[in-house]
Amino acid sequence: MELNFFVDYHRCIGCQACVQACQECDTHRGVSMIHLETIRRADSVQTAPQVCMHCADPICARVCPADAIKKTPDGVVQSSLKPRCIGCTNCVIACPFGVPRYTVEVDQMMKCDMCYDRTSIGKKPMCATVCPSGALSYTTLDDFRRDRRGTPVNEWVFGGETVRTRVFVVVPPPTEQMLIQLTTAAGGGAGPDTPADRDDVASLLEGR
């Protein structure tokens, strides 16, 4: 049975276990590649993890002038090849998910590689292993459907660009695509309003 990665942002409790565990990955020892975003630091405790979504046709690789980003046959997009990466940061600012990191000291782009040292031999990625809330999970589709609510979706629309990913995001049914527009925590901004929640700290502070 094929194992899949599922991200459920709204389950994140901000414990940082994933950030610490990520550093244990052997392909980037001591450096955490996962992003843990605090959505609005000033007035909300909401946090969200972001791993590489491992696109089927990765935009990071397409815009790479050095041809340094490769995908394994099992669909995992790797960090840039050390001999080739020229540190241009095209991938960093072109990735629709904001995943790649450029490290100045080593002049190289590195990113989440789904703990390839582990997943390539059938183990779970470090972050999914330690996540206590199920925001990050690595299991089969059948097990996911049996144990969890929500629909896993791996098709994203960024304006005119449709991106399919190896990693799924968990959304309410019957969603089939993630239509990405700009939005902010309080529901303002360029995109559609986020439905106001009477218990949401940010919304309360803004008098919504």
Binding site: D8, Y9, H10, Q46, V169, M178, Q181
Partner: peptide, 9 residues
């Protein structure tokens, strides 16, 4: 990254 989380939320 924040935008993705907010949309899903």
């Amino acid at each position: 990254r924040k935008n993705l989380a907010l949309i899903q939320d």
